[in-house]
């Protein structure tokens, strides 16, 4: 593994950890607000996963991971929008 890839993996891992901490963080806000907070964290985690997959594809030269990244980009967007819509309308 080249130094650049290692450094990038390292930075992304820390980023993932921080996003995860935000995801599990308890808050004394009402339920819907703290859920929205988590949606933001999840959205970030999806973006980070796309980054991971790209890096992994670069590292191992397995191009299948790029396809997976395409699909994840599509699905993460749908998920975020659905969550936001549900939290706005549903009660």
């Amino acid at each position: 593994m080249s130094f650049v890839n290692f450094a990038a993996f390292f930075l992304l891992t820390i980023a993932f950890l921080l996003a995860f901490l935000r995801l599990i963080k308890r808050s004394n806000q009402p339920h819907r607000i703290s859920t929205l907070d988590r949606v933001v964290a999840l959205d970030l985690m999806a973006t980070l996963s796309i980054g991971f997959m790209t890096l992994y594809a670069v590292e191992t030269q397995k191009t299948v991971f790029m396809d997976a990244a395409v699909i994840l980009a599509l699905i993460a967007f749908l998920g975020t929008v659905a969550f936001a819509r549900y939290l706005e309308k549903g009660n």
Partner: peptide, 8 residues
Amino acid sequence: MLVAAIGV
């Protein structure tokens, strides 16, 4: 991306 995570 790390900056984004720190920000979040």
